[in-house]
Design a protein around this nucleic acid. Structure first.
Lengths: 211, 211
DNA sequence: TAGATTGTTAATCGATTAACAATC
DNA sequence: TAGATTGTTAATCGATTAACAATC
């Protein structure tokens, strides 16, 4: 790709735009200016226009933005115009919660397998799936063109399992394990470190303004 | 407080330092330089020193940092030197997963209640807790000095429940609902928007370098 | 003392905001 | 045409990196 590199600050904001645009659409609003949107989202209108213009400008002078078009374009940028096959590694509480969450499949993220090493969990039903033995993983990944692996297993096991998956061709990791994966640049890693999130919250408890 | 305002870029990095320092300590390493730490964490040594110096400098020239002391200091900054009473609002998959996760209580976050409106769920056992009826919430919060509310309920209900909790004196919200809460500056809000995290991952799938 | 490494100032880089000409 | 609002350039602000004097 020869397009200008988009800064990660911009990418982080796109899903939030997408959410607000979806809500506007649900309310039947089909047109919005950067000014109005900035008030609803609590950001500057300037930033909104700069962000959208990274991708070529979806608005029209004197009019604003068409909500449906803008939402679609941002969806395409985010890769939401296709399906993804997702496997979950680790059938603990969090893995089961992800497997049961219907919202993901609605957005094109199809959870097609869930794996564990614990004989107590293997065979158990989670949502529409049956928990498989980790030993069946390699065959499954080869047969099912898996796009994304969600890692909801103990942090000690995460790097090794991620490495195996990478060798099997998986190119994206949604990492819930409390460790950094340190994979090559050619794979995508998105970390969700809940413990770190909770620490930021406790920091803010002690530092909220005016107390 | 008269201390210099710490930028949120710094705060976001503190929990990761804390994690690395904990791991070093587990390995029996009791001393580290910004240089060594920078290599392990993949950041610049300069940034590490700048970050720590926001809080007064915990190192010693010619020596580096004492891992135990540094970890303790960062822990204190993050507010990890005390206990927090946590209630979970919404006993769905995610609420149950949080309630069952032992790691939080190890760090001083004591989950003391879990609430739902669904009669099917009320009375059910989750970890060591029994799911309570949302109608008992007000009394419970008043009696238990609740510090943090984890919101794992549908986004449509989140703002109203958060408002109620705020009136009851809760000053911190760990928000898993796919919406912005828009509460006053005097309360702390930490958002965990899993759907947005997944969208960033799918963006990166289409934009990993060299493909 | 000599060597190492911090604390801190200065330089650079990047992101955000402001301003306005272009244009629907 | 007149008014509105974008796209885009320029100005500002803040965060990161580099450099080095202070000091253990």
């Amino acid at each position: 790709m020869l397009e200008k590199k988009i800064s990660s600050a911009v990418i982080k904001r796109l899903p939030r735009y997408y959410r607000y645009l979806s809500e506007l659409l649900d309310k039947g609003i089909d047109r919005i200016s950067s000014q109005e949107l900035s008030q609803q989202m609590n950001v500057t209108a300037s930033q909104i226009r700069q962000d959208f213009n990274n991708f070529g400008g979806f608005g029209q002078q004197g009019y604003g933005y068409n909500v449906q078009i803008l939402k679609n374009e941002i969806g395409k940028i985010l890769g939401l115009d296709r399906q993804y096959q997702v496997v979950i590694l680790g059938a603990g509480n969090l893995g089961q919660a992800l497997a049961n969450y219907a919202g993901f499949s609605k957005r094109g993220f199809r959870i097609c397998g869930i794996f564990d090493v614990d004989p107590q969990k293997i065979g158990k039903t989670v949502g529409a799936l049956r928990v498989s033995d980790m030993s069946e993983l390699a065959g499954f990944v080869r047969e099912n063109a898996v796009d994304i692996a969600a890692l909801t297993l103990p942090r000690a096991k995460a790097p090794e399992v991620a490495g195996t998956l990478m060798e099997l061709g998986v190119r994206a990791f949604w990492n819930f394990a409390a460790t950094d994966l340190d994979l090559p640049e050619t794979v995508a890693v998105e970390n969700v470190h809940l413990a770190e999130s909770l620490m930021r919250l406790s920091y803010n408890i002690a530092n909220i303004p005016h107390e």
